[in-house]
């Protein structure tokens, strides 16, 4: 196979070898179709919807716009790598459930990644900052009100109890 490439990715802390890929495959395609990680969703393939949001070296990006082979040597974290204590839900995931922020659920993994990313950089965002942070994540059920409520519930919970992100609220 002369027109394929082989490279190694670090995904959720594990080294994964990708063999026989086409050079132009996106990180999203590699994650979903080659590494069996379907958490990042495939929708627009043009960076508009945010449903494939992942972190590459700590930076939130759309996996569909990252060339898979160019992520070799980077740390990739997908929603599968986001977990609370003992592998349970994180406070963000729990808040999405308890606030009714999940309707069809398609946008949820991307939004969970986005809200975690925001709250790590800015633990007490204003509503405008929250809206700005999720402006690249489309929810076609238009459940933005509940999504904002979920994020705000996490902010209140964390600042009230001083819990860290990895602690799961009971």
């Amino acid at each position: 196979m002369t027109d394929s490439v082989t490279f190694q990715l670090t995904v959720n802390g594990a080294d994964r070898v990708v063999e026989g890929a086409w050079l132009g495959e996106s990180l999203l395609y590699v994650l979903r179709e080659r590494l069996g990680l379907p958490g990042a969703k495939n929708a627009c393939e043009q960076g508009e919807c945010g449903s494939c949001s992942v972190r590459v070296d700590g930076t939130l990006v759309c996996a569909c716009l990252v060339l898979g082979a160019s992520a070799a040597g980077s740390e990739v974290v997908t929603v599968e790598g986001v977990a609370g204590d003992a592998g349970g839900l994180t406070d963000v995931q729990q808040a999405f459930l308890s606030q009714g922020a999940v309707q069809c659920g398609f946008c949820t993994p991307g939004l969970v990644m986005t809200v975690h990313d925001l709250l790590e950089r800015n633990p007490t965002p204003t509503e405008v900052e929250l809206r700005e942070a999720i402006s690249g994540n489309l929810c076609r059920c238009t459940g933005y009100g509940r999504i904002l409520a979920a994020a705000q519930a996490v902010v209140a919970e964390r600042s009230g109890s001083g819990r860290s992100q990895r602690e799961t609220p009971s």
């Binding site: 960076g47 945010g50 949001s53 990006v61 990252v66 986005t114 700005e132 690249g136």
Partner: peptide, 9 residues
């Protein structure tokens, strides 16, 4: 420009 994800890249 774009969204936070786009501006990051």
């Amino acid at each position: 420009i774009g969204s936070p994800q786009i501006r990051n890249a």
